[in-house]
Design a protein around this nucleic acid. Structure first.
Lengths: 156, 156
DNA sequence: AACGGATCGTTCGGGGCACTAACGTTCGTG
DNA sequence: CACGAACGTTAGTGCCCCGAACGATCCGTT
């Protein structure tokens, strides 16, 4: 009676999503780790390129990275010379974080890495299916970014 | 040069997937936390119902929960009277974990909770879209469970 | 019967990600 | 000036995933 390949419970979307996400997360993390990076690094660098120089609070709101995690993330990136942290002359509470040329090169590298990972992740899907998946996920993400406050973008 | 609007990086499947997964993870975790549970609890109880009484190692292999995390998870569930841990008379290395009636009721409750969470998660999608998403994710999950060794299921 | 390899359960620790609490500093505004 | 708000920082929590190590037990071989 017991089906060795599929039980009832593992067909639940939440199970599928969390498990797939776990795989995706692992693949992405492994890809980043292979170049001594973490997800936060990419997210911060990408957001930084999108916004230009900005304060930590602004970056946190835009990237969805918690303020308290921003500190460590920026520390790491700054230690590696990928971003620069300078006091804002117009507001002494703020630091202005900016992307260095090395940081930009780093970002390009991480993007390439990520593209590779995605091919790996989406290997079993046809181009059409990949487009479908992207659309569906985008719809979900948009919805939840709207309702739940933590919107990564479009909240400037 | 720069991508002023929201063109580039946040359309990447990996970004969409990890972000969506983050939302899914949060929703699921919140749903479970509302009844003092964690994802591991559900996964273990569900696996236990699927397999029947089994050793911790077997449960770990089938549920994808790391052996070292199994200990704490079973401790918690056993403290709550949801599972029973008894020494295996035929192999003194092993414990036989079994589901109590209370554990079964608990599982039913968590399943209901999960169903609610899924409605919340998939709210913006039509039934047809939900089916599409489920199919795509199942395909991805199956692929990666096959290739990557750490398959949560179908490894008996 | 003794040995060696494998399995099982357990403890400890760490990494990544998301989040809370608290604190001192600085900025605006009343 | 005083007050509340925003900013950056530190410290700590929780969940999930993973690895290292260890004692106890089982099993196949000798």
């Amino acid at each position: 009676m017991e089906n060795p390949s599929l039980g009832g419970w593992q067909a639940l979307p939440s199970w599928l999503l969390t498990q797939t996400a776990a795989h995706a997360h692992r693949l992405v993390a492994e890809g980043f780790a292979a170049v001594q990076a973490r997800g936060y690094h990419y997210r911060l660098l990408a957001t930084l390129e999108e916004l230009g120089p900005a304060s930590q609070a602004t970056l946190g709101r835009s990237s969805g990275i918690h303020l308290s995690d921003m500190v460590a993330t920026i520390n790491e990136l700054a230690d590696a010379g990928l971003v620069e942290r300078a006091p804002d002359p117009t507001d002494r509470r703020r630091n202005v974080i900016s992307l260095t040329p090395a940081g930009k090169r780093r970002l390009r590298r991480l993007e390439k890495r990520l593209a590779t990972t995605q091919d790996e992740l989406l290997a079993p899907l046809s181009p059409e299916e990949r487009r479908q998946l992207t659309d569906l996920l985008a719809k979900l993400l948009d919805h939840h970014n709207r309702s739940a406050g933590g919107s990564p973008i479009s909240r400037g």
